[in-house]
């Protein structure tokens, strides 16, 4: 049984928190990191196939790297319908980005498909320890309140990039298996 499970994964967060860099680093296995900021216009879609360990199946992630600018909010809302996975990114040096996480989560929720929504909160730029304002505890509390999983790392230092995505893939695979099981039972 070699089937491919597809999942729509939204990557949301305030601008300049490192959504694009995170997705780029994850998609390109070389973990390339661009020092310069490159503003994403609208939405950028990337795909990545990930094999689920110990099984024949694999999950194909459609990564919607959305712009965090207020200007594109309308477009992003349109694109974020029927999302299956979300990655909410914030910058540990910016309280504004941390506060925006909840608004993005609400935005996705209003677009439907709430029962099977799985997601993570990713705290980026942990390498800037002396500028850090959001403690890991606060981040964890927020993630728990939203019913999400908390991860932290630094794209620049290539720390903790893959972990959230692997977690999402695993969760999605489990959900899929549960769903198919229930379908089989129903039929």
């Amino acid at each position: 049984m070699n089937n491919i499970i597809r999942a729509k994964c939204l990557i949301l967060g305030d601008s300049t928190v490192g959504k694009s860099s995170l997705t780029q680093a994850f998609v390109s296995d070389t973990h390339q990191y661009q020092k310069n900021y490159n503003m994403t216009q609208g939405v950028e879609i990337l795909t990545k196939m990930i094999n689920v360990p110990d099984t024949q199946s694999s999950v194909e992630l459609y990564l919607y790297d959305c712009s965090g600018k207020e200007f594109y909010r309308g477009l992003v809302t349109k694109m974020s319908s029927q999302a299956s996975l979300i990655v909410l990114v914030y910058d540990v040096t910016s309280e504004n980005s941390f506060n925006l996480v909840t608004t993005f989560h609400d935005l996705v929720k209003t677009q439907g498909n709430n029962d099977g929504l799985r997601g993570v909160v990713f705290a980026n730029k942990t390498d800037l320890t002396n500028r850090r304002k959001i403690s890991p505890k606060a981040g964890r509390d927020l993630a728990n309140s939203l019913g999400l999983m908390y991860f932290e790392g630094s794209v620049k230092d290539q720390k903790g990039i893959d972990a959230p995505f692997f977690y999402l893939v695993n969760e999605w695979f489990k959900l899929y298996m549960d769903k198919t099981q229930s379908f089989k039972l129903l039929s």
Partner: peptide, 23 residues
């Protein structure tokens, strides 16, 4: 848009620098 992106980039870098210095 391109110009905006460019401006944003410079803006970001400047902001970053400012934040760094501030810190």
């Amino acid at each position: 848009e391109k110009k905006w992106a460019h401006l944003e980039q410079t803006n970001f870098t400047l902001r970053e620098v400012v934040a760094q210095r501030k810190a």
